[in-house]
Amino acid sequence: MAGHGGWSDYRARRLREAATAHPEYEQAGLDLRLGDMVRERRLELGLTQAVVAESAGISQPALSRIEGGGGVPTLAMLDRIARAMHTTFTITVGEQTAA
Rank of each mutant, 00 (worst) to 15 (best):
P23S: 07
L63Q: 07
G71S: 14
I91H: 00
A62V: 07
H4W: 14
L15W: 05
Y10Q: 08
E24H: 11
Q27F: 14
P61Y: 04
Q49H: 13
V72R: 08
G57N: 06
Y10D: 05
E54V: 01
Q49R: 14
Q27Y: 13
R33S: 12
R42W: 01
L47V: 04
A50V: 09
E54G: 12
E44L: 14
I58G: 04
Q60F: 01
L43T: 15
H86T: 11
E67C: 04
Y10G: 00
L32N: 04
R16K: 11
R80C: 04
A76S: 09
A82S: 00
W7T: 09
T87S: 13
A2C: 07
A56E: 04
A99R: 12
D79P: 01
L47T: 06
W7Q: 10
E24N: 13
G69T: 06
V51G: 08
L34F: 05
L78N: 04
T88V: 10
E26D: 10
G5F: 01
R33D: 14
R14V: 06
D36L: 14
Q27V: 13
G46F: 13
A99E: 08
A53T: 05
M1W: 09
G71H: 11
M77R: 06
R39P: 06
T88K: 12
A18L: 00
S64W: 08
M85H: 01
R80H: 03
L75E: 03
G29K: 01
A50P: 04
A12N: 09
G3S: 10
I91L: 11
P61H: 07
D36R: 12
L63W: 05
R83C: 02
L30K: 14
A76C: 04
L63G: 07
T48M: 07
E26F: 09
L32D: 03
G68A: 09
P61S: 03
R14L: 07
Q49I: 05
E44W: 13
Q49T: 08
V52K: 02
A76K: 03
A18T: 00
Y25T: 15
V38C: 08
R14Y: 00
S8P: 07
A99H: 08
M85R: 02
V93D: 01
V51I: 06
A12I: 03
A53G: 06
G70S: 10
Q27D: 14
R80M: 01
T90Y: 10
G46L: 11
E24W: 05
A76G: 12
L78Y: 06
I58V: 09
R11D: 04
E40G: 13
